[in-house]
């Protein structure tokens, strides 16, 4: 599904190479986790895949079901099925959460040549999905993420993911700033979306999220590269021993 080959990325504004040859394939139906120390390039990878400005791809490729992602605008990537759950969801004063969701859902449907969802159908669906994430009517009415707690923001990300039903979900440190209960709720939301047609790339510092979202494959990223790949046990190894041992072993 998602295929990344030899991806090299630098910052647009300065000569700083961040990704130095990332190779990664996420198959449909699988959950891949990327762990790694601060500054290893994890978040950059998520931004480059979703099309954020400020990065320059100097080599390599990234495709989704064979389509070149790097040539697409962010909205085209979204319509093609890429979804990034932000580490820091953005507050947008003046735009109602519901309006935002509906605009996004219908924009993607339109881009794919599908009919727009009627107001009634949309409302029904969003209410049901919001309920399972314990998002109340008030949160849906408020401006996007404005005045939301850390946990509410992350649940709102998962609600967007549930409504947009992407093929490839990228979660950038979705566990950051969450207490255990909030993390469980978010993880349940993610697990509810796991299915054979959908791939996940879960970026995290800590193993604890992976207790709740069980990965099929775990990658360790360091200094802009995937340095080690293994099963769920690899995450436990990091949890117990930190990154130092693994990095020493690789080098």
């Amino acid at each position: 599904m998602l295929e990344i080959k030899n991806l090299h990325v630098k910052l647009e504004e300065e000569e700083k190479q961040i990704l130095k040859g990332v190779d990664l394939t996420v198959e449909a139906g699988k959950v891949h986790a990327i762990m790694g120390p601060n500054g290893s390039g994890k978040s950059t990878l998520s931004y480059v895949l979703s099309g954020r400005d400020g990065y320059e791809v100097t080599d390599g490729s990234a495709t989704l079901d064979g389509e070149d992602l790097l040539e697409m605008e962010p909205e085209e990537r979204a319509a093609a099925g890429v979804f990034l759950a932000f580490q820091y969801p953005v507050e947008i004063p003046g735009v109602g959460n519901m309006t935002f969701l509906r605009t996004a859902v219908n924009a993607q449907r339109k881009a794919r040549g599908e009919d727009e969802l009627s107001a009634a159908d949309f409302l029904k669906e969003v209410r049901a999905k919001a309920k399972s994430l314990k998002i109340d009517a008030d949160m849906l009415k408020r401006p996007v993420n404005v005045g939301f707690s850390g946990g509410e923001k992350k649940r709102n990300e998962i609600l967007q993911m549930a409504m947009l039903e992407p093929k490839m979900c990228i979660l950038d440190e979705t566990d950051s700033g969450l207490d255990v209960d909030a993390m469980k709720l978010v993880a349940e939301g993610v697990n509810a979306l796991r299915d054979e047609g959908r791939g996940f790339l879960v970026i995290t510092h800590y193993q604890r999220l992976l207790d709740h979202i069980k990965p099929d494959v775990v990658h360790i990223m360091a200094d802009g590269k995937i340095v080690k790949t293994g099963g769920p046990d690899l995450a436990l190894e990091v949890e117990n021993n930190g990154y130092a041992d693994i990095l020493a072993e690789v080098n």
């Binding site: 099309g51 954020r52 605008e73 909205e75 979204a78 004063p93 003046g94 735009v95 605009t103 947009l164």
Partner: peptide, 24 residues
């Protein structure tokens, strides 16, 4: 970028943010 990453085309996203700016 947040709006675009959810599939809202640039023009529509810009208009949404412009209206939001005027909302107060």
């Amino acid at each position: 970028f947040y709006l675009r990453s959810r599939g809202v085309p640039t023009k529509d996203a810009t208009n949404m943010l412009t209206l939001a700016f005027l909302a107060e």
